[in-house]
């Protein structure tokens, strides 16, 4: 199925969870905020949250420069 990640189209398997997507993208979930269709998905729910066709995801890397 087709989803969008930070504005770019990605093809992922049905029932892919956010945790699986982050793993496939090589991203460490501890330093990220993930928004699905403009709703923040808490880190603890990444493994339970299955994506659906057409989902729009924003993956934000947290920063610390001062």
């Amino acid at each position: 199925m087709r989803i969008s990640v930070n504005g770019e189209t990605h093809d992922v398997k049905e029932q892919t969870t956010i945790a699986q997507l982050l793993s496939e993208l090589g991203k460490n979930p501890k330093f990220l905020a993930v928004e699905r269709n403009r709703e923040l998905i808490p880190r603890a729910k990444h493994s339970d949250c299955a994506l659906e066709e057409g989902d729009e995801l924003e993956i934000v890397t947290l920063v610390g420069g001062g």
Binding site: T61, L62, V63, G64, G65, G66
Partner: peptide, 10 residues
């Protein structure tokens, strides 16, 4: 809490 990196800011 104010932070930035590259062209990102939080």
């Amino acid at each position: 809490e104010s932070a930035m990196y590259d062209f990102s800011a939080q």
